[in-house]
Amino acid sequence: MKVYSLSGPSGTGKSTSALAFAHQLGVEAIIDDGLLIVNGVRVAGVSAKFEKNTITAVRRAIFTDEVHREAVQKALANYQVQSILLIGTSNKMTNSIAKQLALGPIAHYYCVEDIRSLKEIQKARFIRQTQGKHVMPIPYRQVEQNFFKRLVQKGMEIFGPKREKIGETTIVRPDFQREYIDIDKSVYVQLLTHSCRQQALVHKVEHVQFLLGEQAQAILTIQIKLPLDGSLAERLYALQQAVQQEFYQHFDYELDAIHLHVKAAKRP
């Protein structure tokens, strides 16, 4: 069996990228948080995300439970798995998984920075820290929703380079995920408003909208001051940069888009 490792800190988006990366490598199976996933479908195992605390979650993820371990080993044999990607928070963890499941030595080690951009990693951390959301690289229909009292929702469909569907993701918030800060949208609006008001160009901030979905976007409607010192385009770009810097300073994440609407120009 060809064994591959993908490691990186929690909340950096490993599970989000797992299906596409495994497909890119030509790997048929994935071990992620205690689950055995073959060709995008869970075939055995119990997810560590079902556990009630982080200690039991880690134990589940590295297959310390004998019944759990043997069930996954049996499925590996039944499905005649020839290649597998092990996902963990470190090489030490993926080596432990390989040893527990008797998979043999790991041939190739990858870290999350090899497959995700800094921007993607920052976004994943931002979502984990502010919303407590985790991604499972299995279809929504395969998630035992009774385990999650607070959030279960469909993620996204994953497609290969030829637009063939290779799997789906599901978003959950495990019971043990309590270390996130739930930030009301009004906080983002207040910060963006304050950032604009600090700029000499801005006469008045009329409206601010913050959108957090696939992308984090700010929509700012402003009045500007006359006379203009320099070109308007350059001044507006500088305003965008200032807002971006302020947002990053507070949340360690850059906005994906900042839309500026100039409604009027007035003399101070």
Results as ranks from 00 to 15, higher is better:
residue 1 M to C: 14
residue 3 V to Q: 15
residue 5 S to D: 13
residue 8 G to Y: 04
residue 9 P to T: 02
residue 10 S to E: 05
residue 12 T to H: 05
residue 13 G to S: 06
residue 14 K to W: 13
residue 15 S to W: 13
residue 18 A to S: 13
residue 20 A to C: 01
residue 22 A to D: 05
residue 22 A to G: 02
residue 24 Q to H: 07
residue 25 L to G: 00
residue 32 D to P: 02
residue 33 D to Q: 06
residue 34 G to P: 01
residue 35 L to V: 03
residue 38 V to E: 04
residue 39 N to G: 12
residue 51 E to Y: 06
residue 52 K to V: 03
residue 59 R to F: 14
residue 60 R to K: 14
residue 64 T to Y: 11
residue 66 E to P: 00
residue 68 H to V: 08
residue 73 Q to E: 14
residue 76 L to C: 04
residue 78 N to T: 14
residue 79 Y to F: 15
residue 80 Q to L: 14
residue 85 L to H: 04
residue 87 I to L: 14
residue 88 G to A: 10
residue 89 T to Q: 09
residue 90 S to L: 07
residue 90 S to Y: 09
residue 94 T to D: 07
residue 97 I to Y: 02
residue 99 K to P: 00
residue 100 Q to T: 07
residue 100 Q to M: 09
residue 102 A to Q: 12
residue 104 G to Y: 15
residue 104 G to P: 12
residue 104 G to M: 12
residue 105 P to D: 08
residue 105 P to N: 06
residue 105 P to A: 08
residue 106 I to K: 07
residue 108 H to I: 08
residue 115 I to L: 11
residue 116 R to T: 01
residue 117 S to G: 05
residue 118 L to C: 07
residue 120 E to L: 00
residue 121 I to Q: 12
residue 121 I to D: 08
residue 123 K to S: 11
residue 124 A to E: 06
residue 125 R to T: 07
residue 126 F to M: 10
residue 127 I to N: 03
residue 132 G to I: 13
residue 134 H to F: 15
residue 134 H to R: 15
residue 134 H to E: 14
residue 135 V to K: 08
residue 136 M to P: 01
residue 137 P to M: 00
residue 140 Y to I: 04
residue 144 E to Q: 15
residue 148 F to G: 15
residue 148 F to Q: 11
residue 149 K to E: 09
residue 150 R to Y: 15
residue 151 L to S: 14
residue 153 Q to F: 07
residue 154 K to R: 03
residue 157 E to W: 01
residue 158 I to M: 05
residue 158 I to W: 02
residue 161 P to R: 11
residue 162 K to E: 05
residue 165 K to C: 04
residue 167 G to A: 06
residue 171 I to M: 02
residue 172 V to L: 03
residue 175 D to I: 13
residue 175 D to S: 14
residue 175 D to T: 14
residue 181 I to L: 14
residue 181 I to C: 10
residue 182 D to A: 02
residue 186 S to N: 00
residue 191 L to W: 07
residue 191 L to K: 09
residue 193 T to V: 00
residue 193 T to W: 00
residue 199 Q to R: 06
residue 200 A to P: 06
residue 200 A to N: 06
residue 200 A to F: 05
residue 202 V to A: 12
residue 204 K to M: 04
residue 204 K to A: 01
residue 206 E to H: 02
residue 206 E to V: 03
residue 214 E to I: 01
residue 214 E to L: 09
residue 214 E to C: 05
residue 219 I to A: 05
residue 219 I to N: 06
residue 220 L to K: 10
residue 220 L to N: 08
residue 221 T to N: 09
residue 223 Q to I: 12
residue 224 I to F: 15
residue 227 P to H: 03
residue 227 P to M: 10
residue 228 L to W: 02
residue 228 L to P: 05
residue 229 D to A: 06
residue 233 A to Y: 05
residue 233 A to F: 05
residue 233 A to T: 09
residue 235 R to S: 11
residue 236 L to T: 15
residue 239 L to F: 00
residue 244 Q to Y: 12
residue 245 Q to A: 11
residue 245 Q to N: 10
residue 246 E to L: 03
residue 247 F to R: 10
residue 251 F to A: 11
residue 252 D to V: 08
residue 254 E to P: 01
residue 254 E to Q: 07
residue 254 E to H: 07
residue 259 H to G: 00
residue 259 H to F: 02
residue 261 H to C: 09
residue 262 V to Q: 06
residue 264 A to K: 13
residue 268 P to L: 15
